[in-house]
């Protein structure tokens, strides 16, 4: 049991982070806090992806002796999985963009209602 928890600890961390972010997204009343929630949520996903790339005994996915002579065999097992990193590079950009648009919308909301509290906005919209 202990082993089970320990050998998958990366997942537990990401799950906890994700739940925190998710709660902030749907449970908080302040719009900026919601956005922070989005970010925590997304960061959790990034951590999850990146952690799946790890390999015991693997190193950075930059091929050594790249400019050496002759043909020598490259062992995939000696480098960590590069694909999740690539995906997360893209995902990070997507998240930044979402953040930008979200903040822009929040500014637009603030201009109209002069507040960022959800219940106050709903009050004004009645």
């Amino acid at each position: 049991m202990f082993d089970f928890i320990l050998s998958k600890y990366n997942y537990w961390i990401y799950i906890i982070l994700m739940m925190i972010g998710f709660y902030a997204m749907i449970g908080k009343k302040n719009l900026v806090k919601k956005i922070i929630g989005i970010n925590i949520f997304q960061t959790a996903i990034i951590l999850f992806f990146v952690s799946t790339a790890a390999k015991r005994g693997g190193t950075l996915p930059i091929v050594e002796h790249a400019h050496g002579h002759g043909i020598h065999h490259i062992h995939a097992a000696s480098y960590v999985n590069p694909l999740p990193h690539v995906l997360m590079l893209t995902a990070i950009v997507v998240m930044v963009s979402t953040l930008g648009v979200a903040l822009a919308i929040v500014i637009a909301i603030y201009r109209r209602y002069n507040t960022l509290e959800e219940d106050e906005i709903l009050e004004q919209r009645k």
């Binding site: 998958k8 996915p61 930059i62 490259i74 999985n81």
Partner: peptide
């Protein structure tokens, strides 16, 4: 965590590492 035999480490991704020099001439696989 860090299991070298997880499916993600065996399928698809090895080719990137093994063929990167041959196919793209870029040592940085990412």
């Amino acid at each position: 965590w860090a299991d070298p035999n997880s499916p993600a480490s065996i399928h698809v991704s090895p080719r990137y590492i093994e063929k990167t020099l041959e196919e793209t001439a870029t040592p940085n696989v990412v």
